[in-house]
Amino acid sequence: MHFSKFALLALFTPVFSADLLQVRDYADFQISDGVAGNALAEVADKFPVAEFRADLAAVSAADLEILKTARETAEAAETEAGGFNDAIEAAGGKNTPEGQTLQVGKIKNKVLKLELQVLALEIEQAQGEDNQAKIDEEQTKLDKNVATDEASAGEASTSVDFQG
């Protein structure tokens, strides 16, 4: 009996992780509505952060790609047309009542974006890339935004109707 190298590899390669994520619209994974103070936990409610961190090397390529795409979408919801920056400006700035709730939502969105960025970088690191400096840089940004979110605990938070 003759097996190709690929067939043998397929027979003897253990399956480490089933895909845990599905592609969703931004509206389905955003965390900016509600109140400030618990953004990091809200990210964990939307994404299987703990499951991924339990074995970073085993995260599937498909899940990693979805994490990266979700991060890019969260960033676009901040900076692109129709995103937080535009909405805050249209509300008269972050010192107006509407602008303030949008600013709180923007910080929560930054926590989402940065937590997904750090997680993706940690996965890539565990899978052989050397990107510790970038992890450290993004973790510093994440820590700053988590602290801002926690300092605003209980304040109203508003999302944007971003299509992504």
Rank of each mutant, 00 (worst) to 15 (best):
G154S: 12
E42D: 09
R71D: 08
L112W: 04
D19I: 02
N145W: 13
T148G: 04
Q127W: 07
D19K: 09
N38E: 06
D136A: 11
A81R: 06
A76F: 15
K94V: 11
K94E: 12
M1F: 06
G99R: 14
K110A: 08
V59F: 07
A147N: 04
E150W: 02
L112N: 03
A120W: 00
T101C: 12
I31G: 03
A90S: 12
A147R: 07
R53W: 01
V49K: 11
E129V: 08
A87L: 07
A39T: 01
F12T: 11
A133F: 03
A70V: 03
N109W: 00
A156C: 10
S32V: 12
P48W: 09
A151D: 11
K110C: 07
D25S: 15
P14W: 06
V104E: 03
E75P: 01
K113I: 07
V111W: 01
A7K: 06
G83Q: 13
E155C: 03
K5T: 07
A153E: 15
F84A: 04
A76V: 08
E129G: 07
D149K: 00
I107H: 05
D130R: 08
L9H: 09
Q103K: 14
I88C: 04
S152V: 05
K134T: 14
L20Q: 12
E137F: 10
G83H: 03
E155I: 01
E150Y: 11
A147G: 05
L114A: 02
T69W: 04
V35I: 13
L11T: 15
I107G: 01
G105P: 01
R71C: 05
L67D: 02
E124I: 14
P48I: 02
F29I: 14
K46G: 04
D130Q: 13
G154W: 10
K106F: 06
E72C: 06
K134R: 11
Q30V: 09
A54K: 07
N95L: 06
E42N: 12
V146K: 00
A58P: 11
S4L: 11
